[in-house]
């Protein structure tokens, strides 16, 4: 058991995690922008085959957590592992749906061309997108109910349709762990239903999905697992266990004054 030996050398592990490494393992993750910390000492061990919500107030570091896991923002410290191995060696198992607002929707490409981007890794350097890959991308579009809009320029799609093709692009990546940044933000009712159906299907296929989410009312309905975040992990576990009034208060009701003051002091110091 290669996994076991390397893991044991690095840190203490319970017998359970040694036999089946968690989908996501994070230890001591701290992220700072211009020396001002946005995430403190995040520890997570999330099992596989579930849909995990990430909730917390604005500025709680939800997107930053995803970006730090995916190595898109530099961390001050910390370890990130996917299925027991460092993230950098497991990139192929990971799919990503960025926030919809993060790209220029005026970019001159069609829905199909955007979805095909999820296949670039598989296609490899310098090789063109072949007919086979275009067919696969079209299947991806079909999975989100957008096949008939394949040739449409992306600026002519509605917000919900744009979100769906972002999802389709991740689906054709064929990953085992997905990170989705606010896929439900500003979408219409039918898109919301389509996304939920996709999340359920992914879970049935044994995949693990992390979803940054805003709407607390739908937490029970959408997620098996919940990460409640406010610069640090307030609580993480099965929804039934951690989605409690007490934890909500800790997450949303007034920041921890001491932590706040410490952050401000550090922020002042760097100016």
């Amino acid at each position: 058991m290669e996994v076991q030996t390397t893991s044991v050398n690095n840190r203490d592990l319970g017998p359970e995690s040694a036999s089946a490494p968690p989908a996501l393992h994070v230890r001591d993750l701290t992220v700072a922008y211009h020396r001002k910390p946005v995430l403190w000492d995040v520890d997570l061990d999330v099992p596989r085959s579930l849909v995990a919500g990430i909730v917390g107030p604005n500025g709680a570091g939800k997107s930053t957590l995803i970006k730090a896991v995916l190595d898109l923002v530099p961390h001050a410290s910390g370890v990130v592992e996917i299925f027991g191995k460092p993230y950098r060696r497991q990139r192929r198992m990971v799919g990503y749906v960025p926030q919809r607002e993060s790209v220029d929707w005026d970019y001159p490409i069609t829905a199909l061309e955007l979805v095909a981007m999820g296949l670039y890794r598989q296609i490899g350097w310098c090789k063109p997108v072949s007919a086979r890959h275009r067919r696969r991308a079209l299947e991806g579009l079909d999975e989100v109910g957008m096949a008939d809009l394949a040739q449409r320029q992306i600026s002519r799609l509605s917000g919900g349709q744009q979100q769906r093709i972002f999802l389709a692009r991740a689906l054709v990546q064929d990953a085992d762990v997905y990170f989705m940044d606010e896929p439900f933000a500003g979408v219409d009712a039918s898109t919301e239903k389509a996304i939920i159906a996709i999340l359920q299907r992914l879970r049935e296929q044994g995949k693990t999905v992390f979803v940054v989410h805003h709407d607390l009312e739908t937490v029970h309905e959408y997620f098996d697992y919940l990460i409640m975040l406010n610069m640090r992990v307030v609580a993480a576990g099965p929804v039934a266990e951690v989605f409690t009034p007490q934890n909500l208060k800790w997450t949303y009701g007034g920041r921890l004054t001491l932590l706040d003051r410490a952050v401000d002091a550090i922020g002042q110091g760097s100016r």
């Binding site: 995916l70 960025p98 790209v103 970019y107 981007m117 670039y120 063109p128 997108v129 692009r169 990546q173």
Partner: peptide, 18 residues
């Protein structure tokens, strides 16, 4: 293809290992 990917969505490209 690579330039198209990264000029459109650099975050996705980086997450995808480019």
């Amino acid at each position: 293809k690579e330039f198209r990917l990264y000029t459109f969505d650099a975050d996705f490209a980086a997450g995808d290992g480019w």
